[in-house]
Amino acid sequence: MARSNNMQDDAATPSDSPSQRLAVAGPPTIRDVARLANVSIGTASKALNAGGRLSKETRENVLRVAREIGYRPNDLAQSLHRAKSRTIGIISNDSFGRFTFPIVEALEERLAEEGIAVFMCNATDDPARERQHLDQLLGKRIDGLVVTARRADKRPPIGPLAHGLPVVYVFSQADDPGALSLLPDDEGGAVLAVAHLAARGRKHIAHVTGPEHFEAVRLRKTGYRAALAEAGLPEIDGFYLSGVWSEAWGREAVAKLFSRRERPDAIFCGNDQIARGALDALREKGVSVPGDVAIVGFDNWDVMTLAARPPLTSIDMNLKALGREAGDSLLDMIAGGANSGVKRRPCSLVVRESS
């Protein structure tokens, strides 16, 4: 059998350097594997599919090159090919599901309208597990990927590992200006909450919230301050308290606020758990809600809001709307559309007896 000067079928000469192996433009193909492993396409195919009679060295060299450039035999390099699988993947680190479930429910409903099925994987904040799930999803020849989380802070982009696969981040954002991230408008939600309290005649509005290393906390603080300024209300020293996401912190924060000479007549809480704790503490002190102090939470989690005494006014992040938009965006990207940037969607105010 004739052989070319730079290709061979049963032996392999490694490429010049690791950096040369990684010099692949676009989604890697079997041609890239063959070129960088210095073998024919036929030999590369045999090595990747565990077929043919090849030397151990040749097979290992081909597999090593494929790993280095991220080639997988089942990857679909063209969106036309991808569309045939009619499936998408979801990777989440929200093991509790408080934020993911409404998003995924709406996403699945939207994709089902187009006859597309969903594979969901839980990465639990473990990069190695996330990579394993991604490998498995790519092996299933998914058409696109949705990445979601239990918090909306920035994370490393998954895009480079997906080799051109359409990816949408929802209630999650990639540290990549070329990625599409769909998020609730935390700052706007805080403005809604404080403006509502001001419209009810409250003059001394405190803000009790979670840890400041969360982007949502910082954005809600910005909204709180902006709404106070817009209403012409003072930003009182000591009325902003940052702690943890828990009912215990809500109770502790009320104790701090009521140990002061100047006390609040309203409290905007960073989530519904904090608000529930604040309600309990006020009731124990004999403080009337909303008569003496009005309370507004954030998340509109019915487990918390409807069981609160009194039922809790809260900001709804409209997670189902985010999930449906994620589905629309992914379908558009699979069809060849371009979509990128951070897009924040409006929250809404759900008024109940606490305010």
Rank of each mutant, 00 (worst) to 15 (best):
M1R: 13
N5T: 04
N5A: 09
N6W: 01
N6R: 13
A12W: 01
P14K: 05
S17H: 10
T29C: 06
I30A: 09
D32G: 06
N38H: 14
N38E: 12
S40P: 09
A50M: 09
G51I: 02
G51D: 06
E60F: 08
E60K: 04
L63V: 12
E68H: 10
R72F: 00
L76Y: 07
A77T: 10
A77D: 10
S79R: 02
A83R: 11
G89P: 01
D94L: 07
S95K: 04
S95C: 03
S95F: 05
F96C: 00
G97C: 07
R98E: 06
R98Y: 07
P102I: 08
V104G: 03
V104K: 12
E108I: 04
E108V: 06
L111Y: 15
G115F: 15
G115A: 11
M120Y: 06
M120C: 08
P127V: 02
Q132L: 09
Q136T: 15
G139M: 05
R151D: 12
A152P: 07
K154Y: 09
R155G: 01
P156G: 10
I158W: 01
L161K: 10
A162I: 03
H163T: 03
P166V: 11
V167A: 01
V168R: 01
V170S: 03
F171R: 00
L182T: 13
L182W: 15
L183W: 09
D185P: 03
D186H: 12
D186C: 12
E187H: 08
G188T: 11
G189I: 09
R200N: 05
R200W: 00
R202K: 09
K203Q: 14
V208E: 01
V208G: 01
A216C: 12
K221Q: 14
K221C: 04
Y224G: 02
A226W: 02
L228S: 05
E230N: 03
G232I: 11
L233G: 02
F239L: 12
V244M: 05
E247P: 02
W249D: 03
R251V: 07
A253T: 10
L257P: 10
L257I: 13
L257A: 10
L257D: 13
F258W: 15
S259M: 09
R260S: 08
P264H: 03
P264R: 08
I267T: 07
G270R: 00
G270E: 00
G270K: 00
Q273R: 05
Q273D: 12
I274W: 01
R276F: 11
G277V: 10
E284Y: 08
G286F: 14
G297W: 02
W301F: 13
L306A: 10
A307G: 08
A308N: 15
N318S: 06
N318D: 09
S329C: 05
L330F: 13
I334N: 12
A335H: 13
S340A: 15
P346H: 11
S348E: 14
L349W: 05
V351A: 11
S354I: 06
S354P: 00
